[in-house]
């Protein structure tokens, strides 16, 4: 199904009316700072901000809308805000699948996460450009969402090809059809979209040529500790990489009981911090920085893989972007894998 970009934008503005759309908030990537800035962050739709649905991923991960940095989880006091998030990227959508598996499964459902997921509709959009740290092509990802979205937008020139991926998506599509002129897709436009997607993949391949590797991640574990120690030399253990990672969900539970009723607050934690796995008495399995540094890589490529049958890295490159020591995630994986002697 095809819709003109202008008409779609007009539709989004109309969706700000809750009576019309049912949404309390329309959230989309907004250009940060001045016009020349090439970074984006999620913000509410407003005429005063320049937004960009296409381009590439935002600085902040999509997870922050579902797994809040700090949230009271006992007693439950969830508001019923209905949100529409537009312009989520393939890497974030895939990361959300990891979180879904972690937070909503047969053994356990996190109520807060569950409600945020229930109350949020996600429209993903193909990347039309790449950030310097983007590397989804190295982790079997694509610069577009393949599943787990409600609607997906693929831009070609001045139109969007709209694909529905869920019941919620179908409903929104009905509303869209009522409001805007939509046309059926054609093999020709599909071919154009495919070409557009391939173009971005080629850009990614070129950008990450130097990091091409054999993805035998078991080798990360076999690698001698000296290599990890070298790679982590400049790491200051701040935990920015895990906080900004779209699949990291380690949490701590704080007891904030003040009166009769028990109060629990859930916050984000980071395996990079020294006290992370420390038990009473002071013993910790990873007292050295390089051990904690290594743990993050093993978690992404081995532990999460075995827990969820998905890699914990979706190639968004945010950890590299956020690193105060300018440690490039791709470079580390590459050099550690290459350093393994068979």
């Amino acid at each position: 199904m095809i819709i003109k970009v202008d008409e779609f934008i007009a539709f989004l503005y109309k969706c700000q009316d809750k009576g019309f759309s049912g949404f309390d908030q329309i959230i989309l990537p907004v250009r940060s700072g001045n016009k020349d800035s090439d970074s984006f962050y999620f913000a509410q739709l407003s005429k005063s901000k320049e937004f960009d649905i296409d381009s590439y991923r935002t600085v902040d991960p999509l997870k922050m809308f579902f797994f809040l940095p700090r949230e009271k989880i006992l007693p439950q006091t969830f508001d019923n805000t209905k949100r529409l998030i537009v312009g989520a990227k393939g890497c974030d959508i895939r990361a959300l699948k990891v979180l879904d598996k972690a937070m909503i499964n047969e053994d356990f459902v996190d109520p807060a996460y569950f409600y945020w997921r229930q109350n949020t509709t996600i429209i993903s959009a193909d990347c039309t450009d790449i950030a310097p740290t983007c590397h989804c092509n190295l982790v079997d990802g694509h610069p577009y969402a393949e599943a787990n979205f409600d609607l997906n937008l693929s831009r070609y020139k001045d139109v969007y090809v709209v694909t529905s991926g869920s019941e919620k998506g179908e409903e929104l599509l009905e509303l869209l059809k009522k409001e805007c002129k939509v046309e059926p897709g054609s093999p020709e436009i599909s071919a154009n979209i495919q070409e557009q997607r391939n173009k971005i993949i080629r850009l990614l391949e070129k950008q990450n040529e130097q990091y091409e590797r054999n993805n035998e991640f078991e080798k990360l574990k076999q690698n001698p500790m000296d290599n990890w120690s070298d790679e982590s030399k400049t790491c200051i253990g701040c935990g920015a990489c895990t906080n900004i990672c779209p699949t990291c969900y380690c949490l701590i539970l704080n007891d904030e009981t003040k009166a009769e009723e028990f109060v629990k607050v859930r916050s984000m934690d980071s395996c990079q911090l020294n006290g992370y796995a420390r038990v009473a008495g002071g013993s910790t399995p990873r007292p050295k920085m390089f051990q904690r540094f290594r743990n993050r890589y093993l978690c992404k490529f081995l532990f999460m893989k075995s827990n969820f049958d998905m890699l914990g890295c979706t190639g968004c490159g945010r950890c590299t972007e956020a690193c105060a020591a300018q440690i490039d995630f791709r470079q580390v994986v590459n050099s550690v894998l290459n350093a393994v002697v068979d």
Binding site: M103, F108, Y249, L251, I252, D269, Y276, R278, P285, S306
Partner: peptide
């Protein structure tokens, strides 16, 4: 360090 008790917080992870 079994913080949450149900496999969410990951503090007690030993490999897989």
């Amino acid at each position: 360090k079994m913080y949450c008790g149900f496999g969410q917080c990951r503090h007690c992870v030993m490999g897989e």
